[in-house]
Nucleic acid binder design. Structure first.
Lengths: 110, 110
DNA sequence: ACAAATGGTAAGCGATAACTTACGGTAAGT
DNA sequence: ACTTACCGTAAGTTATCGCTTACCATTTGT
């Protein structure tokens, strides 16, 4: 998977409110599918599908434990998106300051 | 707008590839609608609609300049999402280390 | 005053995505 | 061995979203 595509997949994964709910459930630690679905308004297969999307995006890791499958937040996946936003923030700030400078130079007597 | 909703809107706004393309066009500085649309494979109204979504999410600022409207990346909007991911990353790391500790304690003779 | 340029909005269409029910497959308990 | 629990996948439906064309408002230029 390309780096640009990875960002796209991660962003799309986090865009859905139900998936962000799932992420919130996993903030305190790994959980099996059933435990997640029990506290959510959607069916278990729906949760399973969401977990697939989140895993494909690299946001979750899966560790089969006997009968169950424990899902956990993958710090690396979150970090990738974090770095993208850091770069975007740097560019935005630089462009902002440049625009402010040009306006001060272009219109000195406002 | 609630803080949670703001994150949701920002995430949804950045989930679309065309909107991320627009953001990329604005990395070097503010641009009017027409200039953006000219370098993109979609029509100007489509760009206009995307700019609306991005603005509503707080990711862009608009400054009317005579006939045109200059769109620029809003550093504050990006920063809000950045902080959300930072918090998520912190929680993920803490949960990760806690899980590693519990496994080391629970299964000492693996 | 008229014409051209810039851009936001409405209506309609096609594709995608999230959900449900139904099913199959593997691991654990009795 | 059989039954129960846990979970992923398939098929089908519905709602949402992104796009286009058409239209209107405002501003600039002649």
């Amino acid at each position: 998977m390309d780096h640009k595509d990875a960002i796209a997949a991660t962003m799309t994964a986090l865009a859905d409110p139900t998936r962000r709910d799932i992420i919130d459930r996993l903030r305190s630690g790994p959980l099996p599918v059933g435990a997640i679905a029990k506290t959510m308004p959607v069916s278990r297969p729906a949760v399973s599908q969401h977990l697939r999307v989140l895993s494909d995006a690299g946001l979750l890791s899966v560790t089969p434990s006997g009968n169950r499958r424990l899902y956990a937040i993958a710090p690396d996946g979150v970090d990738a998106l974090r770095r993208y936003l850091d770069a975007l923030w740097d560019d935005a700030l630089a462009a902002f300051q440049r625009a402010a400078q040009e306006q001060a130079k272009g219109k000195p007597d406002d």
